[in-house]
Computed example of a mutant assay.
Amino acid sequence: MAVAALILTGVFALLDVARHVIQRRSTGDAGIRQFSVGPGSLQWWAHWGMEFGTLITGVAAPIADLTGLAPLEVLDHPVARGVGTALAVLGILATFAAQLAMGASWRIGVDETERTVLVTWGPFRLVRNPIFSAVFLAFLGLTLMVPNVVAVAGFAAILVGTQMQVRRVEEPYVRRTHGTAYTDYASRVGRFLPGIGRLRSDQRNER
Rank of each mutant, 00 (worst) to 15 (best):
3 V>I: 09
3 V>D: 00
4 A>Q: 10
7 I>G: 04
11 V>E: 09
14 L>M: 13
17 V>T: 11
19 R>F: 12
20 H>W: 08
20 H>A: 12
22 I>A: 05
25 R>F: 09
28 G>V: 09
28 G>F: 07
29 D>F: 14
29 D>K: 11
29 D>A: 12
31 G>P: 02
37 V>K: 01
37 V>C: 04
39 P>T: 06
40 G>P: 04
45 W>Q: 01
46 A>Q: 07
48 W>A: 00
51 E>P: 00
52 F>C: 02
54 T>I: 11
57 T>P: 08
66 L>D: 12
71 P>E: 07
78 P>M: 12
79 V>P: 02
80 A>D: 06
81 R>L: 04
84 G>M: 04
86 A>S: 14
87 L>Q: 02
88 A>P: 06
89 V>R: 05
97 A>I: 14
98 A>V: 13
100 L>T: 15
105 S>L: 05
107 R>P: 06
110 V>C: 10
110 V>Y: 01
112 E>C: 08
113 T>Y: 07
113 T>G: 10
115 R>D: 11
116 T>N: 06
123 P>A: 04
124 F>V: 00
131 I>L: 04
132 F>M: 04
134 A>V: 02
134 A>P: 01
136 F>P: 00
137 L>T: 08
137 L>R: 01
138 A>E: 00
139 F>W: 00
140 L>W: 01
142 L>D: 01
142 L>H: 04
144 L>M: 11
146 V>G: 03
147 P>A: 03
148 N>Y: 07
155 F>H: 02
156 A>R: 02
161 G>F: 08
162 T>E: 10
163 Q>I: 11
165 Q>D: 07
169 V>G: 01
170 E>S: 04
172 P>K: 14
175 R>N: 08
175 R>Q: 14
183 T>Q: 14
188 R>N: 14
191 R>D: 08
191 R>E: 06
195 G>R: 09
197 G>M: 02
198 R>M: 13
